[in-house]
Amino acid sequence: MGRYLIRRVLQFIPVFFGATFLLFALVFVMPGDPIRALSGDKPLEPAVIEALQERYNLDKPFYQQYAIYITNVMKGDFGTDFRGRPVSDIMKTSLPITVRLALLAFAFEVVIGLTAGVIAGVRKGKFFDSLVLISTLIVIAIPIFVLGFMAQIVFGLKLGWFPISGYRDGIYSLLLPAMVLASLSLAYIARLARTSLVENLRADYVRTAKAKGLSTKRVIGIHTLRNSLIPVATYLAVDLGALMGGAIITETIFNLPGLGRAVFDATRSQEGTVVIGIATFLVIVYMIANLLVDVLYGILDPRIRYE
């Protein structure tokens, strides 16, 4: 297990370099000139442009720019945006909002998705099961931005239950966006839990558990559920990583100043350093989440061995 973990962490290194290099290349080939974009319609003095280009190393060839960037990152310096604000500061202010949003969405997924899925699985073919299957299918079919706007109109404007924009009311203003953010994974989790439970209820060991004279509650709640939750738990762990970085659309719709919004704004204004900084951070979060999944798998299923 220890050796496995070390090997997995060492694998982070090539992934880190590969990911940053690709991101860097993508930002480099983005059309338009970020310096000229700064001033809008009014043209800048050529001397100013040159000075700025030199300051941000934009005059150097691509590989050199990458080398400088990576060297700075190693020293803990993620660079600054064109206004001189350090990227690490941007992350510091936006990360807490994204983390709260992600955790709230995660809680919705676990509580609602799992409960719905398990009940549907136990009552396979009954009304509740059909209800879960149909409603999750609808959620999966509708793009998240449509869901987001619909939620804003219905629960924000018409019913007035939740604020529709901004982060003034703290956690309360995160409830509606978290629900929208969670909706897709929630639907998947409900279906995954249902299918997994139905499949496991047919397993031989469930019949053994019944033959042991155990109550239905124990047969399902302990023997079947423990096995059924293995795929669900691993999906949840991957999803936690995705939630941290995948909230771009939701944060933009609900105007939340989180990481997703920061990346979105930076991409629009061609702030390469910010985009790469945040995206790299998200890559690391994702890698850790994946490692967590693999470790979790081994804990949940004793048949899996690490080599």
Binding site: D204, R207, T208, A209, G213, N227, D301, P302
Partner: peptide, 18 residues
């Protein structure tokens, strides 16, 4: 389980793996 107990065919699948 208490008065009538059953032994199943394939113990690998009949025992709970976890």
């Amino acid at each position: 389980g208490t008065r009538v107990a059953m032994v199943f065919q394939d113990a690998l699948t009949a025992l709970n793996p976890v």
